[in-house]
Design a protein around this nucleic acid. Structure first.
Lengths: 103, 103
DNA sequence: TGCAGTTATGTCAGATTTGACATATAATAT
DNA sequence: ATATTATATGTCAAATCTGACATAACTGCA
């Protein structure tokens, strides 16, 4: 992984786990981070397609505007669980989730 | 949702959230539970294909045998995060993850 | 410009998830 | 039958994630 890419992630708050701070991410770690970013991007896409604000989506999800923002921005404090729950809640089904993940 | 199906889930420890204990799950809630069960089943499938024991996989994942068992059994204490991390760690890629989810 | 609506970022107490452990049960071999 | 190895289940302290809140930054618009 290129160092500037890693710095970009670090800037976003990603802690590149403990001892391996200065080593490359494993493929699995990479995939997880990529996946979160992808899911967040698509959440935003769906929300915008529905012409909803983050606050409106937050209400539907019983969450908060700030958390929606974090999801869409790929904040490391957000779990894949929450991202997938949110996508389902805005009407994404298994099939489209699979497409999102595959891309 | 059929009552006996719901009892089956309840037996496994699923709490059918608070007030709606006696109501059907929302489609989103349903999808999440289904997804966890699917991911767990496939984790087991991959592990067995590799001829690994749960303990061996646990070591790779820096987890524990009991948590692997819980993942494979669809225990409600397991997150989608952990399931997906585990699948990646045993060699599943985005494409096959998408296939798993879609099925 | 100032204002209203929206999104971004930081913080934190409470909730959830975690690995680890003990121990039970199941499967397999000798 | 009884070791051995594998899997299942319950518990819990520590780690992580959550909604909520404050507040900053951005966006368009009168």
């Amino acid at each position: 992984m290129k160092t500037n890419k890693k710095n970009e992630l670090r800037k976003k708050g990603w802690r590149i786990g403990g001892v391996v701070e200065f080593l490359d991410l494993t493929p699995a770690e990479n995939s997880i981070i990529e996946l979160k970013l992808t899911l967040g991007r698509h959440l935003k896409k769906y929300r915008e397609k529905l012409h909803f604000s983050q606050s409106q989506v937050a209400k539907i999800l019983q969450s908060s505007q700030s958390r929606i923002a974090k999801m869409e921005k790929g904040d490391p404090s957000v779990s894949i669980d929450l991202l997938i729950k949110s996508l389902f809640a805005v009407g994404v089904n298994k099939k489209s989730l699979a497409q999102i993940i595959n891309c």
